[in-house]
Design a protein around this nucleic acid. Structure first.
Lengths: 340, 340
DNA sequence: TTGAAAGCGCTAACAA
DNA sequence: TTGTTAGCGCTTTCAA
């Protein structure tokens, strides 16, 4: 039976393109053409259809559109959370910045952003589903190399913002170089006992920053004084406490993220020492935390917004070739946590 | 002609449920049943289908699923940005917190989160499209009353996290009461020249906090000493400077958000005054900024994560009735920016 | 330029 | 329990 839709005066059934076509006295095809501003439909008909659209308050059903055309208007962002519980990443300034970088470019093409938080455990299956149902592409905001490869295998329109595997297209920052430069800067300012507070052992960015610190300290003939953090303020606080206790003669710290640096400053201050007078500090990220501390942080700027915007544009343009790389520098931003 | 799909050895055409059914030697309906874990299909067939799914690496097409079933598996979040350019909201700690609150509850039901950043101008049309294509529901993270009404008119499954119109379901914090309590706290601690730094004039939360400040100051018989900010650190810095210049005898500040408070502390410190010795400060939000400052901020805690989680659960449960309200308290969190 | 008609991949009556 | 058959609302050949 033809589906004789009940549509009383009060009924709020959303009008379909069929309704528009009928109201305009044209075929669905024609209605579709003018609605999509496509060629091959014209003159008075365009006007009639437009009028019908306006009168009915018609809005295309994006789901149907996506199914029929095979195109979607959303970019997927996936972040596997290393931290305690899902949600902690969302709280981290880094994550806000990737969103902040992506939104303006998406808004310009009128696309949305789909967020997927994936627990480190539940991931494998969830990852496949995301990859298979990806829209315009997927941006890997934070992920392990293994998982990145898995996504890329199922969806070529993928870009990672963190170091992963050689095959996965990436928009990367020079984490190693940045960390190296930070230690060098500290050394040039006369510091000789340069400690470090690192990020999570499994985090690819943290790994690179750790590597950069080690290389620099080796090259300069300094002692390695490391403590492990978790990219959170609390972790930075406690790591700094430990460092101060074990090595009271520390005169500088390189800290793998600003949030931890904020905690470290508090620990240092609480121990009776002053920043930068007694201990110089260089953070990493140049996130919102860097300008909230007292003194404001000297830090290595990670151009997250730029990177996220570049990744998004890349996806919008097409499918990046396997192994694609775009590199971003990590520059020193001098504020007040370094002496001299 | 029947679409004889070309599917050579190397071809990577995604398998459909049709393929699964064929491979398992069952009908599409049966395949669908076992894939969806629905009743009315069983024993050996379930096994055969599962095997086929595994072998083919089948993943349901969510778009087709949504169209056919009329159900979606995503919640929409909309934020109209008051600030300079899109993206600034995403940078603000508030926004991260709503995401952080929503993600865990969405992850539990395996749903996604769709983000829509809407410029204050481009909004009306964009808003309609979002409302008409909403999934499980829409969470209004930041919006004007007019726009909120507009969304709610087109999509009943809407909840706002900020004060809007009476009809729009809301999960609200007691902004007025919080601001009032802050001023009272300052007064009880002996402060008598209590200034305020407010948020954007058009922001509903900012409006309420301003109201709370005025009411308190009136009730206590104190002078109103107000400056306008923008919910950003820079704005807080400059507002504090102005305040200090115009009213050098200020002994406390109530600041409508922690980010501005961070800026204010820097301005106060730069002027040679000390926090809290010379000037006590109470912020608002209890965001990440509150614990990064030096000294850490005494602030009024806005339970954003809880509110966002509650809003999400509400949407997941069904359609909130018009005018629905759930209220959250705004409690004092004492840290070190208040004297005594 | 316009319309008829065949799907997109799936779900959900309805029959068997 | 299983399969058959309509659609979901739209885009897009293909004819006219």
């Amino acid at each position: 039976m033809g589906g004789m839709k009940v549509r009383g005066r009060m009924s709020r059934v959303r009008p379909t393109i069929e309704d528009v076509a009928r109201a305009a006295g044209v075929s669905r095809a024609t209605a579709s053409r003018v609605i999509n501003n496509a060629p091959g439909a014209s003159g008075p008909l365009r006007a009639r259809v437009s009028a019908a659209v306006a009168e009915l308050g018609y809005q295309p059903n994006e789901t149907a559109r996506a199914l029929a055309s095979g195109r979607q208007r959303a970019v997927d962002v996936v972040a596997v959370t290393y931290g305690p519980g899902p949600g902690w990443l969302a709280t981290h300034p880094y994550f806000s910045r990737v969103l902040a970088g992506m939104m303006p470019v998406l808004e310009r093409v009128d696309a949305q952003l789909r967020l997927h938080a994936v627990g480190l455990r539940s991931s494998a299956a969830a990852i496949d589903e995301i990859a298979d149902n990806a829209g315009l592409g997927v941006v890997l905001a934070d992920i392990t190399p293994a998982l990145a490869v898995r996504v890329h295998r199922r969806c070529r329109r993928t870009v990672s913002l963190v170091p992963t595997a050689p095959s996965v297209p990436g928009v990367e920052a020079d984490n190693i170089g940045g960390a190296y430069a930070a230690v060098n800067e500290l050394h040039q300012r006369g510091c000789r006992r340069i400690a470090a507070i690192h990020g999570p052992a499994a985090n690819p960015c943290a790994i690179d920053r750790r590597t950069g610190y080690r290389q620099a300290v080796d090259a300069l003939g300094l002692a390695e004084l490391s403590a492990d953090g978790d990219f959170r303020r609390e972790g930075g606080y406690h790591a700094a406490q430990r460092l101060l206790e074990q090595h009271p003669d520390i005169d500088a710290m390189f800290i793998a993220c600003d949030l931890m640096a904020a905690g470290a400053i508090q620990a240092i201050t609480a121990s009776g020492r002053r920043v930068p007078h007694d201990i110089s500090i260089i953070g990493f990220d140049d996130s919102i935390a860097a300008v909230c501390t007292n003194p404001p942080l000297t830090t290595m700027r990670l151009p997250v917004e730029d990177m996220a915007a570049a990744a998004t544009r890349l996806l919008l343009e097409g499918t990046p070739s396997a192994g694609y790389r775009q590199r971003f520098p990590v520059d020193l931003v001098v504020r007040d946590s370094t002496c001299r």
